[in-house]
């Protein structure tokens, strides 16, 4: 169940810094431990950079969600870029097209509790992550 939500644009490098701060605020509001906050913010940084660089910009939706007694932060990164042709391969450690270390997607998956990616060639990519308290 979604308790509240907000949408932020990711159009520039400054926006990546901004959405990181948003993720931290929302995590701090739920009194996440420092380690959990750091994990969520780091995943946000990775995914927001992907949205900007591979997806040619997009948005981040941030939501406070509830599942029974648990509360968490759900982040949805959405772009209308070229999409990812082979998701399986993109999720492997060390696979990169951007000249990085290839830890962006696979690494952020390890930093959160739930991770879902949908991508269609030519239509764009949507990545949804949840970190529970």
């Amino acid at each position: 169940m979604v308790l509240k939500s907000d949408v932020h644009p990711i159009k520039s490098a400054d926006d990546v810094v901004r959405v990181r701060q948003v993720a931290r605020q929302w995590a701090a509001e739920l009194k996440f431990s420092l380690v959990d906050q750091t994990k969520l913010v780091t995943a946000t940084s990775e995914l927001a950079r992907n949205t900007l660089e591979h997806g040619k910009g997009g948005t981040m939706r941030v939501e406070q969600v509830e599942n029974g007694p648990r509360r968490g932060v759900r982040l949805t990164f959405e772009d209308n870029g070229p999409g990812i042709p082979n998701i399986e391969r993109a999720l492997q450690d060390g696979y990169t097209t951007g000249g990085g270390l290839g830890l962006g997607l696979s690494g952020s998956k390890r930093l959160v509790n739930e991770f879902e990616i949908k991508s269609e060639a030519g239509r764009g990519t949507t990545v949804t992550i949840i970190r529970w308290k």
């Binding site: 380690v35 750091t38 994990k39 780091t42 696979s106 690494g107 390890r110 930093l111």
Partner: peptide, 13 residues
């Protein structure tokens, strides 16, 4: 910081 180190290791670096 400890939280940063834990996260970085989890990230795979």
């Amino acid at each position: 910081q400890p939280a940063v180190a834990i996260t970085l290791v989890e990230l795979g670096m």
